[in-house]
Nucleic acid binder design. Structure first.
Lengths: 346, 346
DNA sequence: TTGAAAGCGATACCAC
DNA sequence: GTGGTATCGCTTTCAA
């Protein structure tokens, strides 16, 4: 048996019309209990399942959402896949994965459109103008996840976005480090052109400035493990006193940084240098490092994404940029206040 | 513009038949340069892309492969997604993701089959007999990745599998630990019913026995982070001398174990206890721990999977169980030989 | 409630 | 090489 049974065959076996079969499998259609029973019996016997391709050809709904990502090394993204996929599955949608380097985005876009997807989620990838316009042209709703293209383009093409409050998150880090009395605070940026890195740095710098401080040293890690390792080496190889605190634009890079600090430079964290990250990676990632980080909730972000997508797919709801608040979670990679070493208060 | 252009419209604009349009977009069809040019121009103008749904309806090929996974916490699996997705994309296939808890496997299966996928990759999930039979019935080739159901079922339904040489890998660990002179070697198992854990343990025990040794203590971690933490606590809380070496059935759990050793029990790795894992997780995961591990190459395993799938989809090639060799990679989580502490030789 | 018939958008087989 | 036509499996009017 190569192909599974068709509605035609089920109809024949059940002694009803093909339409009846169709109705039986269409929620909320009018079928008598009797016919339905006959159809279900026949269907079960033949192992019949409606052909989603044929169905979507006519309903113009594939119930497929495309998820585009550029790389999964960063532990944050697997979590996104899992959460998004599960939430969508509950609503009867499915995720078609596209791994794409940034330069082949247009090619990928063409493939996506062929599958008549109902929506697109763009994660860890910037929406190029050409991509945005081909989306707009095809009328497929698209949500940018975690990163946004420059707002001008977003506004122009009416695209949606879900990000966390990166700017505020960056500020929270600055406030923490200043309150703990650090004096030589360094920063490792991600991809210079990504909105996440830019916003986090902006908030960070603003808060430092407000307190009359400024960043001590700065390097770029391009959101890669290797890049962050190199950036860390550079920050600590420069002449003058080494940094006493380090804000890294995401957890993935923060882990790389701590790896270098501990295993190459023989520095202790947090005794010699404190480290703060950003994102939300599972404990398996930050475990050994007990990384203090600004957590952006995958759960909330994905929920917002699904909701946005839904609204767009129904046709109501205008495009929006949803900003999810984030939260600072203290762990042992930041040195506690000097006057409170040990006991908490009292 | 809601829906994109159809071949019909392109044909009209290009002043050719719809067939000509179809041929233009069918690699290796016979179209004159002239027609092709006319069609391409019209297509470009209308933003035409063939509708994959309609196409697959008639070609009976969706060029979609379903990937079923149960959880992505284990860093090994994101790598699998990425590699598999990229390799398949290169061949014109795409990955439809299904996250499934083991108990809802049948439900998921039904959904998968609706999409007329060309193949199924089952990772981190066991193939239940019912699942296997519904696959066999539908004639969709299926490859079990990394785990296998009991071989009897595999043979019966003629399913494919790709695993690494877990048994030999387990033996390699035993040989290493014995050669280094450890005496109280403990083991943390994964899911007791999974072939990976069973085979790794079997090889491990066999090699120990061959040298006249046996495992000192044993606990079960169920392949979860929390389970492995608890298992580690149990192993070291038992009365008597604590283990001096620990073989953990996968890296994900090994990281959890080392987390407990270091952060809860204040033990040093490898000075107080050596640890060995299994799998192939990225450096971001093992970095701080410098975990010694048996590496099963994702690259090779995925390559084998794609090849298997291909053979099955073409119809030639019999079902096979491909066993990929694995390799022991030494890092600092295992104490070096006592007589060679420091310099390597000389 | 039911069945017959008209497509959805593309491919494949056919004569020309 | 090209254009007509049947067909893929299903949903959806529309009469009955």
């Amino acid at each position: 048996m190569k192909s599974s049974a068709t509605a035609q065959e089920v109809a024949r076996l059940a002694q009803v019309s093909q339409s009846a079969v169709s109705r039986t499998f269409t929620p909320g259609a009018s079928v008598s209990e009797e016919t339905r029973a006959k159809v279900m019996a026949a269907a079960a016997q033949l192992g019949y399942r409606p052909n989603a391709m044929a169905r979507s050809l006519i309903t113009r709904q594939s119930r497929i959402v495309a998820l585009v990502m550029s790389y999964l090394e960063n532990q944050f993204y697997p979590l996104v896949i899992q959460t998004l996929s599960q939430k969508l599955q509950k609503q009867g949608y499915h995720v078609l994965m596209f791994i794409s380097d940034l330069d082949e985005a247009d090619e990928v876009m063409a493939e996506i459109l062929q599958y008549q997807v109902d929506g697109i989620v763009l994660a860890s990838t910037m929406l190029s103008p050409s991509l945005a316009s081909s989306c707009a042209a095809s009328g497929v709703p698209i949500v940018q996840f975690n990163r946004v293209a420059d707002t001008s383009a977003t506004a122009r093409y009416g695209t949606n976005a879900v990000t966390s409050d990166n700017r505020r998150g960056g500020a929270m880090v600055a406030e923490l480090l200043l309150a703990r009395g650090f004096e030589r605070i360094a920063f490792i940026a991600g991809l210079e052109r990504s909105s996440t890195s830019v916003e986090r740095e902006r908030g960070f710098n603003e808060a430092l400035a407000e307190a009359g401080h400024k960043v001590y040293r700065r390097a770029v890690g391009d959101y890669s493990f290797e890049g962050a390792q190199a950036a860390t080496r550079a920050l600590f190889a420069a002449e003058g006193l080494p940094p006493d605190a380090l804000f890294v634009a995401n957890d993935h890079m923060a882990i790389a940084a701590m790896d270098v600090l501990r295993n190459e430079l023989a520095l202790r964290v947090p005794e010699d240098v404190s480290v703060v990250g950003f994102d939300d990676v599972p404990q398996a990632a930050w475990g050994a490092y007990q990384l203090t980080t600004v957590v952006q909730s995958v759960e909330k972000m994905v929920a917002a994404t699904v909701e946005l997508l839904h609204g767009q797919m129904r046709g109501d709801a205008p495009p929006r940029h949803v900003v999810v608040p984030c939260e600072l979670v203290l762990r042992r990679s930041v040195r506690p206040p000097a006057n409170a070493s040990g006991a908490a208060s009292d």
